[in-house]
């Protein structure tokens, strides 16, 4: 890693700094809300497949930043072998933490592929991570996920419009899609990416395996699963719950797109965990929330 720059930018009403660093020929961007607000550990957010800090954390970033410092990483997609993807991305997250938040415990929160990356980062550098949150993550890509990945790949070759519709179908919960108007469905459909970078991330997704790294995760961990998730089914989150020693588990009623379907509930879960990671002991399933 070498150069870094910092320029002011805004996300809504939250002041933030935008910075970047280089790892080899990859440029990694990040956003930093800077203001500490409190003695709480800073939260580092890692987005998922096809997303960015902005597109996945447009809600979580500013709302969490109201109470504690938040840094969000824009992952760069590595071009090497896909089975090295998770570690190459984890190195980016580790580099951002070392640069922006050196020598202090951070709470690392990853969503989807970002959860895989965060778990890898925490397992390979336990010294950097004080708490870990894995939203819609998975332990090791299984046959159901490979089947979906196959369909994704085939549709990308044959029918990109159908691929977008398929992505919307997979990403959101059935109850949410059922409520939407035709226009809202079309707006969702058109928001999905099908470009080469997305395809490269889908290849990385095919090769995810946290089996070896999960037992090395030492910090308190919160696993958040979506009850209606077709892309990383909740049973995958339960496998993480089994594999990580100091883990607790909870579900939100949502599809994979929980950052869109239940953003306020995620703010609640992340903020509460960050304030007191051991409110619930290792092995606990959080009490059902009945607002």
């Amino acid at each position: 890693m070498s150069t870094a720059s910092t320029v002011p930018a805004t996300a809504g009403d939250v002041k933030e700094n935008h910075g970047s660093l280089h790892i080899g020929d990859l440029e990694v961007n990040f956003f930093d809300s800077v203001d500490e607000h409190s003695g709480l550990p800073p939260i580092v957010l890692v987005h998922g497949t096809g997303g960015s800090a902005r597109s996945h954390f447009g809600f979580l970033f500013p709302m969490l930043a109201a109470k504690q410092r938040v840094v969000a990483v824009d992952l760069a997609t590595p071009q090497g072998p896909p089975d090295e993807g998770q570690i190459r991305m984890a190195e980016q997250v580790q580099a951002v933490i070392e640069k922006v938040l050196p020598d202090r415990p951070v709470t690392l929160a990853g969503y989807s592929l970002g959860a895989v990356v965060a778990a890898t980062a925490a397992g390979t550098r336990p010294d950097l991570v004080g708490g870990l949150i894995l939203m819609a993550g998975w332990l090791k890509t299984d046959a159901q996920q490979k089947l979906r990945n196959d369909i994704w790949r085939a549709l990308r070759q044959s029918d990109v419009e159908a691929l977008r519709r398929y992505q919307a179908f997979c990403a959101f919960s059935a109850p949410l899609l059922a409520m939407l108007s035709d226009g809202e469905i079309e707006a969702l459909v058109s928001s999905f990416r099908t470009d080469d970078l997305m395809a490269a991330q889908m290849e990385i997704n095919r090769h995810v395996d946290l089996t070896d790294v999960a037992p090395k995760i030492a910090c308190p961990t919160l696993i958040v699963a979506g009850t209606d998730d077709l892309m990383t089914p909740f049973r995958q989150s339960k496998r993480l719950f089994g594999a990580i020693a100091d883990a607790r588990y909870t579900e939100v009623t949502s599809g994979h797109a929980m950052v869109v379907e239940r953003p306020a509930e995620l703010v609640h879960l992340i903020a509460a965990f960050n304030a007191n990671p051991n409110q619930y002991p290792a092995g606990a399933i959080l009490p059902t929330r009945r607002p």
Binding site: T10, A11, G12, D13, V14, G58, F59, P62, M63, A66, P175, T253, R262, P263, A264, E265, R289, R290, P291
Partner: peptide, 26 residues
């Protein structure tokens, strides 16, 4: 009934982002 209530609650709570003047939600 509870599921509908929970959906309404968390949807409504997300509307606080607009009250906190976050551009996109406002």
């Amino acid at each position: 009934v509870e599921e509908m209530r929970e959906m309404l609650f968390w949807y409504n709570d997300s509307r606080f982002a607009a009250r906190r003047l976050i551009d996109d939600y406002l």
